[in-house]
């Protein structure tokens, strides 16, 4: 008698087995994986592109002007060439090189700003939830006040007053506006966890405050923290792109937003230079869709009731 395990599984059985494994591990969520894959592909473009493509082509005038991607023709009747596979812009820059340099810059601003914002949020949220009293009041009112101020408007004032800023500086500025929602979220969670049995147990057994914070509470906060982090990455990138499209932000470093700004200003829409604004728009779209999918996936990880719906 042969064991059923030795039999090659049929396709349907394999699919079912896969489903069961997914059911066991909520982190193997298809949305999460797709979202992470999309973001990873952007990172890979930036990392691998550096080795295979000549990055000196990001400089103005290094290439012919307004060449279309391969297989297309521009209004002057020029067709795309292999030296510039996705075309060139109105300043004579190679679009592929612009993307290899620009796309990671955009992601970098989003990640750095939210990392800083999250750290501030974790610190303030825990302090407010744990210490209570005056500290809590101050932090709560501060977060409530700051959460209604749209970051874009303040940063517009800042950057138009100071002129050129670096990428890191822009990320730092944006970080000043993405700590509020993590703070509120963590404060609320800490307040409710403080009442829970296991935290009180730890307190009774004499565990230190830092032990309770980081060993007892933090692990339970992880899905929320991730979700909040992804949301603030989205906000940061939206704000950064907004500033860049208004012509602010770093002036000499290629970013996706700045490329769009230059394309609009040069009338790329009327001249039908769709690759100039379209390719950065597409990449930003991929970044945002990737972030959304990760967030939806995380929602399903932390809220099992949503899982059966998808």
């Amino acid at each position: 008698m042969t064991q059923p395990n030795d039999m090659p599984l049929t396709r349907a059985e394999k699919r079912q087995a896969r489903r069961f494994r997914q059911f066991d591990n909520p982190w193997l969520n298809p949305k999460l994986i797709w979202g992470a894959g999309l973001l990873l592909s952007i990172v890979l473009i930036g990392l691998l592109g550096r080795f295979v493509w000549d990055l000196d082509l990001v400089f103005t005038g290094s290439s012919p002007l307004k060449l279309p991607p391969i297989g297309f023709e521009n209004l002057r009747g020029q067709s795309g060439v292999a030296a510039h596979p996705i075309g060139t812009d109105g300043g004579g820059r190679d679009m592929l090189a612009m993307i290899i340099v620009g796309a990671p810059n955009t992601l970098f601003v989003g990640l750095l700003a939210s990392l800083i914002g999250m750290s501030i949020g974790i610190f303030l949220g825990f302090s407010a939830g744990f210490l209570g009293g005056r500290v809590d009041d101050t932090i709560r009112v501060g977060a409530d006040v700051m959460i209604t101020i749209p970051p874009l408007l303040i940063l517009v004032v800042f950057q138009s007053a100071f002129g050129d800023v670096s990428l890191t500086m822009m990320a730092l500025l944006i970080a000043g506006f993405v700590w509020q929602s993590p703070t509120r979220l963590i404060r609320a969670q800490v307040l409710s966890m403080k009442q829970s049995g296991y935290v009180q147990m730890a307190q009774l057994s004499g565990a230190s405050t830092s032990h309770i914070m980081f060993r007892e509470m933090m692990p339970n906060l992880v899905p929320y923290l991730f979700g909040s982090f992804i949301a603030s990455v989205t906000t940061s990138i939206v704000t950064a792109v907004g500033l860049e499209v208004l012509g602010l932000g770093p002036q000499r470093i290629p970013t996706l937003g700045r490329t769009i700004y230059e394309a609009i200003n040069a009338g790329a829409l009327i001249q039908n230079l769709w690759w100039w604004w379209g390719i950065p728009t597409l990449l930003l779209g991929i970044i945002f869709i990737g972030l959304l999918l990760i967030n939806l996936g995380l929602d399903e990880v932390s809220n099992p009731r949503l899982r059966k719906l998808s």
Partner: peptide, 16 residues
């Protein structure tokens, strides 16, 4: 899926 995109990008696309 398209709702994560900021309106400026959809605006560009629709405008074109």
């Amino acid at each position: 899926v398209f709702t994560s995109i900021p309106p400026i990008l959809s605006g560009l696309l629709l405008m074109w």
